[in-house]
Amino acid sequence: MTSALVVDRLTKRYGVQTAVNDLSFSVEPGSITGFLGPNGAGKTSTVRMILGLIAPTAGRITVLGSQTIRPVQDRVGFLPEERGLYKRMNPVDAVAFLASLKGVPTAEGRRRARTMLEAQGLGGHLRKPIKALSKGMAQKVQLVAAVAHHPDLVILDEPFSGLDPVNQQALEGVIRDIAARGATVLFSTHVMQHAERLCDRVVLLARGRKAFDGTVPEARAAAPRVLTLEGQADAEALARLPGVVAVQPAPPAERGGAPRLTAVVAPHAPVQEVLRALFSQGFDVSRFEMKEPSLHDAFIVLTGESLPAPQTLESAA
């Protein structure tokens, strides 16, 4: 099957600064691919090159089988990082106008706009000027505008930024729906949780270079796991067990509780072997807990960079 998007040895320099450096990856049709990296990693520059907004310094991009964006422009949907719509237009007109640029007749565009906006809970705001809508509502309008022409490839640049956690969750549903319709989705983000829940594949980017390209489990497997042990255990003996790369004391789970140790298990090392060796050597362990690494952990290991703390429902409340 031909890839929906192929990025081949792509480089972009702004003067002496290299924003994207020899980047290659491909996106399979019908998949959801996360394009991940901290701010300034080169995600937006890559997205802009894919869309033909800026020219690459070197490299080649194939979009929906075409070497240039122009012939397939109508089959691509795009949500830019910085949102913008005509403030005095109403949502239906705005969506229909942008869809008409993609070849959808105005009447059909308006029909689709109404249906999709109503599905997004904006049925009561169809005739209001966009400047009268809340930021979250305007972002929904913009997302609808990006997909109203039923594109084969949808590129979303930081689609979750600026949304509250409830709307972030709703947007995840929308992205799944787009993929369920058969479209290919590439979205950039610096929040790993969304990618973890949504993506078939992820491409990790750090300082303009690709740090990882694969599935989420593959990415996670690259990160060490943490085994927490409660009971009487010898830290030095524990550290000598096969696969254990570091051991640290941890505070008891409760006041006056049993002492605890955390053992960092090397990536790909079988945790069962560690546990088996633990018990066979007579460690007095009353409780153990294995924590699988998150994509966030994997990113730090794979890129050597830290990411901003993700926003949670609790922190947002």
Binding site: Q73, F78, P80, E82, G84, Y86, L98, L101, K102
Partner: peptide, 14 residues
């Protein structure tokens, strides 16, 4: 259109 970022949207369509 520039200040409201509409230009970038248009640039992705035309």
């Amino acid at each position: 259109e520039k200040s409201s970022r509409v230009l970038e949207i248009l640039a992705g369509s035309a």
